[in-house]
Design a protein around this nucleic acid. Structure first.
Lengths: 197, 197
DNA sequence: AAACAAAGTAGGCAGTGGCAACAAAGATGT
DNA sequence: ACATCTTTGTTGCCACTGCCTACTTTGTTT
């Protein structure tokens, strides 16, 4: 059991973030309330302010850790995917879409520019999974599967495709049953579309 | 000049929607306030309720008309694009991304499932631009540019790619200057990826 | 002309985020 | 060891929001 210090909570910030993550999953960012989180943490309504100047700051922090987790999950998927480019790409796509559909509200928070101007930290956090895609493509080029050239554009297009698929599914515009087939098609098309001619 | 009837406003619904569109453009859905719109329309704070039972209902209506306008703009772009498949696809993509980047908050509203359960109208409205993509692909197949087969999957992937690009740009994760080049790459990749072998 | 439906008004309610002023607990310097 | 300073809480307030109910005005129907 966790002992609960009377006044100084000790890890309020972490507690709030955890509660926020749950709330986000359950009800979406829209309904997330600082006062609610405070109540859940057994703390006064103004306490969160010491750790997050702003509601938005809390949301930004969530998004940031989201990117970190996304990156982590993508790398884990890659680690199990062998050497060959095709399967590696496929594994990445599947992992991305699992993350994106299981945590749709978080995804929304991460990509939708709810983040205000000075969200450098967020953009920096986003750079990691981006770099991963980038590296994946370089690998495809090195293996001679993809045509050589600047991997950036292709990487962005790939990332965008996955992100777009997630949006359509999460938005209820595409039935989840179709997801696997669509991922298949997307990966296949991507490879054919940039393969060495 | 529009005469302003004293009590019965006559077109409050339309007035509110127009104001809402402006507000959405300027500040995003988050900050849109019914009471604000009412004030702007010179009407009491409870008046909007007669036309939209709910804040969400207003947002849904905005999204719905967004889909209609998107469809309209895509069709307009297609009408000017000649017969050949490549240029037609390109024109569609450009038109989509113009819409998506110029009205990013609206786009977010349209695709992000802020819409609640019974948003059949919305899904129906979304079906139109979807159908357009679908038709475009069928045409590509008919012209022998694309491989034959179920156009649905490819259509979804195409739509998703455009949508994803919009999300990345709108979210500030990809610099707007890159947009044109990315669209080029995406279109090119798509054609190569599903071209008749 | 009476009855009715539609569209607007007034006011109240609970809830929110943000702010300021104050209090407790811990850390720090002498 | 003690006084001081900083951090992290607390209480109470404000303006604002969406939603609800009850009432009023207008326009339409019979």
């Amino acid at each position: 059991m966790t002992s609960v210090p009377a006044y100084h909570h000790g890890n309020l910030r972490a507690t709030l973030l955890a509660a926020a993550e749950r709330s986000l999953r359950r009800d979406g960012a829209e309904r997330l309330s600082l006062r609610d989180l405070a109540r859940e943490a057994g703390v006064s309504h103004a306490a969160p302010r010491r750790h997050f100047p702003d509601r938005q700051a809390l949301l930004d922090a969530l998004a940031e850790s989201g990117f970190a987790r996304l990156d982590q999950e993508l790398r884990a998927a890659l680690a199990e995917a062998g050497e060959e480019f095709g399967p590696r790409l496929h594994a990445t796509a599947v992992a991305y879409l699992r993350f994106a559909t299981e945590d749709s509200a978080l995804l929304e928070l991460m990509f939708t520019r709810k983040h205000r101007e000075g969200a450098d930290r967020l953009v920096a956090a986003a750079a990691e999974p981006f770099g991963l895609m980038h590296g994946l493509i370089e690998q495809g080029q090195a293996q001679g599967v993809l045509e050589p050239g600047d991997p950036q554009r292709a990487g962005i297009v790939l990332f965008a495709t996955l992100q777009g698929i997630a949006t359509l599914v999460n938005g209820g515009l595409v039935a989840p049953e179709l997801l696997d087939g669509i991922v298949e098609t997307a990966v296949d098309q991507f490879i054919r579309g940039s393969r060495r001619r």
